[in-house]
Amino acid sequence: MNFIMISKMLLALFSSICLVYVGSAQQTNANSTVTALFAFGDSILDTGNNNLLLTVTKVNFFPYGRDFVGGRPTGRFGNGRVFSDMISEGLGLKSLLPAFRDPFLSNNDLPTGVCFASGGSGLDQLTASIQGVIWVSDQVKDFQNYITKLNGVVGDQGKANTIISNAVYLISAGNNDIAITYFSTINRRFQYTVPGYTDLLVTWTRDLIKSLYDMGARKFAVMGTLPLGCLPGARTLIGNVMCEFFTNQAADMFNKKLSAEMDNLGASFPGAKFMYIDMYNPLIGLINNPMASGFLDGRDGCCCTPTSIIPCLDASRYVFWDIAHPTEKSYKTITPSIIEEIKQKLA
């Protein structure tokens, strides 16, 4: 199995998607005890933070954003809205979660949340450095800068603290660490076994949570990885007849360890709430039985893959948009139950 080739394909995917936010996010009127949403991690959540970085890991160009409002690329890794947008809307906050590094970010958006995630990033510093994107620890520094701006906007320390402590902190990290850094960086494979590296990823997740907890965060929704071996980029390299076993095995191992960690963190972080979001199994369900949810193709990407150099006409027929990212319809299909779980466990 050529892991380096698989990793390069996935790198191209995870590197190619992050969009420029195109206007003030629409507000919704739904009642919620959640004050804001803050997103950290990788391209599954990124809404445009990479656009001004000196990196190839960005997607502020056509055909990305083809089905977004106005049909314009914004830096989101997909054909339209991404997972963080839909969680924000589902919690009654706003339908678009703006990128913190968007130069046109409105002060009006600060109290209800922003996105700090960076496409191509991960828990391992090497993951971010090899792509020139924002490491999760640096995203926490951005959050610290955000708090300073929020205090200036609301003009009341107590009110700012209330927003911070009652917000949901959505984290997606580990996808690129496993798919890119571990299986394509020789020194990581020499340094760690798969069990050892996944243990380290869980430790780094805990460190990230502690950093945010120390700044006032109390409600954490931590996502597992996608079924990385079933992404179109990985499948294509082994003939597109099945999912690539070893990458999926590593992803599944990490997810199980991460889920167990979320169950145990309450004792270490008094007053905080934690939940694990399973991304692996819902997507496997769409991949294995796409027609049950109104899709026609669960294996190929609509766009930007060796099998679809010319973008498909209708992305809603596909589970995947490109070699590594789900379509907007896929996110819409799996998010309703996740939103309800967030409301039950964190609100």
Score class of each variant (00 low, 15 high):
residue 64 Y to R: 01
residue 85 D to K: 05
residue 49 N to A: 08
residue 62 F to N: 06
residue 26 Q to D: 13
residue 59 V to F: 06
residue 78 G to S: 13
residue 29 N to Y: 11
residue 58 K to C: 04
residue 26 Q to W: 01
residue 59 V to L: 07
residue 61 F to N: 09
residue 54 L to Q: 14
residue 75 G to M: 01
residue 75 G to S: 02
residue 65 G to I: 05
residue 30 A to Q: 15
residue 40 F to E: 08
residue 70 G to N: 15
residue 39 A to N: 09
residue 56 V to Y: 12
residue 92 G to M: 07
residue 69 V to N: 11
residue 62 F to R: 08
residue 98 P to W: 03
residue 36 A to L: 14
residue 23 G to N: 11
residue 47 T to K: 01
residue 48 G to E: 05
residue 38 F to L: 14
residue 77 F to E: 02
residue 60 N to W: 00
residue 79 N to G: 10
residue 58 K to S: 08
residue 45 L to H: 03
residue 81 R to E: 00
residue 20 V to E: 12
residue 88 S to W: 05
residue 31 N to K: 15
residue 20 V to T: 09
residue 62 F to Y: 12
residue 95 S to R: 13
residue 29 N to E: 14
residue 84 S to L: 03
residue 53 L to W: 06
residue 60 N to P: 10
residue 38 F to N: 13
residue 26 Q to C: 07
residue 19 L to V: 11
residue 44 I to Y: 07
residue 82 V to Q: 07
residue 45 L to F: 13
residue 64 Y to A: 00
residue 68 F to V: 03
residue 43 S to E: 02
residue 50 N to T: 01
residue 49 N to S: 07
residue 96 L to P: 00
residue 70 G to M: 10
residue 50 N to P: 02
residue 27 Q to P: 11
residue 53 L to C: 09
residue 51 N to K: 04
residue 24 S to K: 14
residue 42 D to M: 02
residue 69 V to L: 13
residue 82 V to K: 03
residue 55 T to N: 10
residue 82 V to T: 10
residue 23 G to Q: 09
residue 24 S to Q: 13
residue 66 R to Y: 11
residue 39 A to T: 12
residue 53 L to M: 08
residue 30 A to G: 12
residue 28 T to W: 00
residue 50 N to A: 04
residue 101 R to M: 10
residue 88 S to N: 08
residue 83 F to I: 06
residue 41 G to Y: 04
residue 68 F to K: 01
residue 71 G to M: 05
residue 20 V to S: 12
residue 44 I to D: 05
residue 102 D to Y: 01
residue 39 A to R: 09
residue 78 G to Q: 01
residue 47 T to G: 01
residue 36 A to P: 13
residue 55 T to K: 10
residue 78 G to H: 00
residue 85 D to W: 07
residue 84 S to Q: 05
residue 29 N to Q: 15
residue 69 V to A: 14
residue 69 V to Q: 13
residue 21 Y to I: 00
residue 22 V to H: 10
residue 80 G to F: 04
residue 71 G to T: 06
residue 96 L to S: 06
residue 66 R to L: 12
residue 25 A to N: 09
residue 73 P to F: 08
residue 99 A to I: 03
residue 101 R to E: 10
residue 74 T to K: 00
residue 89 E to L: 03
residue 78 G to D: 00
residue 52 L to C: 02
residue 94 K to R: 15
residue 60 N to V: 02
residue 25 A to H: 03
residue 75 G to Y: 00
residue 63 P to M: 05
residue 36 A to S: 15
residue 33 T to C: 13
residue 34 V to C: 14
residue 48 G to V: 02
residue 98 P to Y: 02
residue 35 T to C: 14
residue 91 L to C: 13
residue 88 S to F: 06
residue 62 F to W: 11
residue 46 D to N: 03
residue 82 V to D: 06
residue 50 N to Y: 02
residue 66 R to V: 10
residue 77 F to W: 10
residue 87 I to N: 08
residue 25 A to W: 01
residue 72 R to P: 00
residue 97 L to D: 00
residue 70 G to Y: 08
residue 90 G to Q: 10
residue 35 T to L: 12
residue 56 V to C: 08
residue 50 N to L: 04
residue 45 L to P: 03
residue 27 Q to C: 11
residue 46 D to M: 00
residue 59 V to E: 06
residue 47 T to I: 01
residue 72 R to G: 03
residue 83 F to A: 12
residue 101 R to S: 09
residue 77 F to T: 02
residue 81 R to N: 05
residue 42 D to T: 02
